[in-house]
Amino acid sequence: MSDVRDAGVQDRAAVAAMLGRAFANDPAMSYVFPDPQDRARRLPKLFAVLFDGDADGMRLVSGPADAATLWRAPGKASTPLTAMIAQALPLIGALGTAIPRGLRISGAIDAHFPVEPFWYLHVAGVDPSQQGRGLGGKVIRAGLARADASGAPTYLETATESNLGLYGALGFQLIGDWQVPRGGPRFWSMRRPVGG
């Protein structure tokens, strides 16, 4: 894991662009931005906002942003109202008319968080040109090692059913599945105990 490092401000644009490509066909992002061209244009902006919002957790990157994870620290999984207000203009710029769908997904995600303190694997992505090389697992394992050292379990949700095998191999256990209201995508919630 020697090439996995903390992502800094200098990595913001590259990480946001890579995550935009990685999530181009994600069911949740396809729901938020139904038009593929609009999605391609807006996703890097959205991931730049998320990158900024996760500065207090862990932002890990492999190589020149071939893979990245954004983590939120225990007790900070939900975005507080003050942070949402501070990010309002960038979020409006990123989401545009998709704000209601974005808020619907965000609200559903928050409603399914565990009650215990946990590290939240908020975002994990690998550049499509680099997938299949183990980079995603490597950058996730680096975050899991830090989470284990803190003594807190980890949690994630995914709207991509094919991700369940990867996360299962990393020690995550399926704890539920649920649907975003009003025609939104299905999500799977997974938890990993300390040392998983």
Results as ranks from 00 to 15, higher is better:
1 M>Q: 07
1 M>N: 04
2 S>I: 05
2 S>E: 06
3 D>K: 01
3 D>L: 01
5 R>N: 15
5 R>K: 15
6 D>K: 08
6 D>P: 04
7 A>R: 11
8 G>S: 12
8 G>Y: 12
10 Q>W: 10
13 A>T: 12
13 A>K: 10
14 A>H: 00
14 A>W: 00
15 V>I: 09
16 A>S: 14
17 A>I: 06
19 L>S: 01
22 A>D: 04
23 F>G: 10
23 F>T: 06
23 F>D: 12
26 D>G: 07
27 P>T: 05
28 A>Y: 03
28 A>C: 04
29 M>W: 11
35 D>W: 00
37 Q>G: 02
37 Q>S: 03
41 R>S: 09
42 R>H: 04
42 R>A: 07
44 P>C: 02
45 K>S: 07
48 A>R: 13
50 L>R: 07
53 G>D: 13
53 G>L: 09
53 G>I: 04
55 A>W: 00
56 D>N: 13
56 D>F: 09
57 G>N: 02
57 G>L: 03
60 L>V: 03
61 V>P: 11
61 V>C: 13
62 S>E: 07
63 G>V: 09
64 P>L: 07
65 A>E: 10
66 D>A: 07
67 A>G: 07
67 A>D: 05
69 T>C: 11
69 T>R: 08
73 A>P: 03
74 P>Y: 03
76 K>N: 04
77 A>N: 08
77 A>Q: 10
77 A>T: 05
78 S>K: 11
80 P>C: 14
82 T>F: 03
83 A>K: 11
83 A>T: 10
84 M>V: 15
85 I>K: 15
85 I>V: 15
86 A>E: 13
87 Q>S: 09
87 Q>G: 05
87 Q>V: 01
88 A>T: 03
88 A>E: 04
90 P>D: 00
92 I>C: 09
92 I>R: 14
95 L>F: 01
95 L>E: 00
96 G>C: 08
98 A>H: 06
98 A>G: 02
100 P>M: 02
100 P>I: 01
102 G>C: 10
103 L>I: 07
104 R>Y: 02
106 S>A: 15
108 A>R: 06
108 A>P: 05
110 D>W: 00
112 H>T: 15
112 H>M: 11
113 F>E: 02
115 V>T: 15
115 V>P: 06
116 E>G: 09
116 E>I: 08
117 P>C: 14
119 W>D: 14
120 Y>R: 08
120 Y>P: 09
121 L>P: 04
123 V>R: 00
123 V>F: 04
124 A>L: 13
124 A>Q: 07
128 P>R: 03
128 P>N: 05
134 G>Y: 11
138 K>I: 10
139 V>E: 12
140 I>V: 15
140 I>Q: 10
141 R>H: 02
145 A>H: 11
146 R>E: 08
146 R>L: 12
146 R>F: 08
148 D>C: 06
150 S>Q: 12
150 S>F: 08
152 A>T: 02
152 A>K: 09
154 T>S: 15
154 T>A: 15
156 L>M: 15
160 T>P: 09
163 N>R: 13
165 G>P: 07
165 G>V: 14
166 L>E: 12
168 G>L: 05
171 G>D: 08
175 I>N: 13
179 Q>M: 03
179 Q>E: 03
183 G>F: 05
185 P>R: 08
187 F>P: 05
188 W>Y: 12
189 S>E: 03
190 M>S: 06
191 R>K: 11
193 P>H: 00
193 P>N: 00
193 P>Y: 00
195 G>P: 04
196 G>W: 08
